[in-house]
Amino acid sequence: MILGVGIDIENHSRFLKYISPNCNPEFLLSVFTKDELDNYRKFKNHLCYAVSFSCKESFLKAFGVGWNNSKIQWTNIELLFNEPPENKNTNIRISGIAQKLLGEYNTNTSFLYNYSIDNSVVVFESILTCKKK
């Protein structure tokens, strides 16, 4: 059974500034976790930030909330890349209030996700599902 679907589109050129050495680390830490930032810095690729931000937005939509009207924090949804973002080899970690919310839906809740990158945008889709009893 599908509990929620979230789709987000981000123009990835907006994230170029995040790989600049002048980018404010405090700002980055308010949206991304330290693990995420360590992971993205390895790839030196702004697409990591764009895909990750889109992932967070997409999951918030699947939960049926917005970042500014729920207690879910940006850092509750983490996306880590095992390979460069174009290769789509990733892991997602859900924690905090988001994890609690996932458990409240149903103990058998799980999620699916996919994303695509073209010349200008990242499209991220996520689906929350649970097994029928």
Partner: peptide, 30 residues
């Protein structure tokens, strides 16, 4: 969009040297 919102908050944090966390703004916005 939310990215603009976050960036604007950051501009004010820097300009006025504010101690404000996003989660506080999130709770306020609920």
């Amino acid at each position: 969009d939310s990215l603009m919102f976050l960036e604007l908050i950051e501009i004010f944090k820097k300009k006025y040297n504010l101690n404000i966390e996003l989660k506080t703004i999130g709770k306020f916005n609920v």
